[in-house]
Design a protein around this nucleic acid. Structure first.
Lengths: 219, 219
DNA sequence: ATAACTCTGTTGTAATTCCAACGAAAGGAA
DNA sequence: TTCCTTTCGTTGGAATTACAACAGAGTTAT
């Protein structure tokens, strides 16, 4: 477990937890470090999960199988990131997705109730932990809402303007950088990359925006 | 406050709280009941909010103004529902939306930290409350993720199949009812209603699905 | 330096979607 | 019943998008 000390400390879930508290805390939570080989199933859809996880090394995927058995990838999760925490705390009866490893992986699994309930030993970091968890889930919530708002726009042009407009507001300036390359931006906006490129050029020609690489400006 | 006792009891946030505990609990939380007239601003975008709300009567809207000042409605919230809880617990510096009343309204406002921190009087329902809140936010998270997965499909046909396939799995049967009428379903899938109607007919003609009103069957 | 690769913008065509308009069916109210 | 409203499916034309293919700029590896 010590091997992954640095990575654990960098996780939001353990924010504001003192270094020396981390190990006893993990013991109190009864956190298990588990090794999985590539291609194994961590959580199976249909289960009622009682744990959420942290990727310590390797990579896992959240996948969903539809009625006809076609599998699609919802997310990839790498080292230092949580997974399945929303499903665990939502107390969903049947997990709608599966969690599988795509490489040999070291995972930490934690009982969601152990983290949420005050323990008998009255560890006072339990309270910090649950607040951190609430913040993590709430932040994701806000990000998801924002993405839905933007991708709900009908045309590529409107999606772009909604996104860029939001970035400008966030930056508090009409000039700002975006954290995606073109393909990633197209994936985020759920449009075709080439069509998006065309629309970006059109917007620039129309004098609505200016851009150079990832530097944008609203006019 | 007694006037709204029934509605408060029905809220998930207060699930598993005994009747007689509710009033002292609200007092401990320092919950304020506030009256707003139609068209007033409850929270202004740019603020750092320290409270979330519950609609007791009336209706509020969550709206967002873009860079050019165009306002769009994100959600309407009616009696018995929470609002702004994700923004409060995410501890966002600048609220990206505004909350406004669209009718005369009675709202309850609660300091998000008062609910999350154990109080000096050691009320043991604080723990229940924060767990309920975590579950509420996590559930919303799951719903949002699901919606994004479905609306990320490229064509109307694929969106429909993704949605119907999910409903079939949830129902555990190839026959199931959906909770939306056609317009609501189109809004959820972010497609044009008439185009969706056409696609539904095509799916039926192709022998992929059968439907009558809100009763669907996957073949 | 050369080759291989990635990223970005452009173009033309086929496919899809939006939009407006309309009629039929179902349900509610007078 | 009759009238009015809402919901749903259908159609045709305009607008938009996806897709495939390609070229140039910039990077990285050898």
């Amino acid at each position: 477990m010590k091997k992954y000390f640095t990575i654990l400390q960098s996780i939001n879930l353990f924010a504001d937890i003192a270094e020396e508290e981390l190990l006893p805390l993990l013991a109190c939570l009864d956190a298990k470090t588990v090794h999985y080989e590539k291609g194994q199933t961590v959580f199976m859809s249909g289960e009622r999960i009682k744990q959420f996880g942290i990727v310590l090394s390797g990579e896992i995927q959240i996948v969903q199988d539809d009625y006809y058995g076609n599998r699609s990838i919802l997310t990839k999760v790498g080292p230092g990131h949580l997974f399945a925490e929303a499903f665990a705390y939502a107390e969903i009866e049947k997990l709608p997705v599966s969690v599988i490893t795509t490489t040999d992986s070291e995972l930490m699994l934690i009982d969601y109730r152990k983290l949420a309930l005050p323990c008998t030993r009255a560890c006072d970091f339990h309270n910090r932990l649950i607040q951190n968890m609430l913040k993590i889930v709430a932040l994701k919530n806000v990000a998801l809402t924002q993405k839905i708002k933007i991708t709900s726009e009908r045309t590529t042009r409107e999606k772009l303007l909604a996104y860029l407009s939001g970035e400008a507001k966030k930056a508090g300036s009409s000039r700002f950088q975006i954290p995606y390359n073109r393909q990633e931006l197209a994936d985020y906006l759920i449009v075709d990359r080439s069509a998006m490129s065309t629309e970006l050029s059109k917007l620039q020609k129309d004098g609505v925006i200016k851009f150079h690489k990832n530097q944008f400006e609203l006019l």
